[in-house]
Amino acid sequence: MTDIQFLLIAILAGAGTFLLRYLPLRMRTKKATTAQGRLLHQSLAAIGPAAIVALIVVSLGSEIEPDRLAATLLPILSGLLGVVIGRKVGKGNIAVATLSGVALYAGVAAVLLG
């Protein structure tokens, strides 16, 4: 592929991705007054937490290797425990919780990898 073709891909893919983010924001401006509208709004409120759970499952799912179950699962479980501990120690600070989780994950992974 030439640079012109790469540029065309970047522009088209970027424009499409932007519109997928932008158009629903514009359509959201109407207030829901009907029962169906309220139901839609309640569903939208659940989309956020549902997305977070789905992102966790997808991102962890790609980390786990069935052939190396212990070597991949143990660091993950330790890392999640690290997040819980970091959240308590950091009084809810997201960065502290994330870093603690990664640190514990790295520690256990280092031990298992020898």
Partner: peptide, 20 residues
């Protein structure tokens, strides 16, 4: 270890947000 641990950063962030 570094390569493997970097892959855990985003799941850790998502989990911290979920707890919130």
């Amino acid at each position: 270890v570094l390569d493997q641990s970097l892959g855990f950063v985003l799941p850790a962030l998502f989990f911290a947000l979920l707890l919130d």
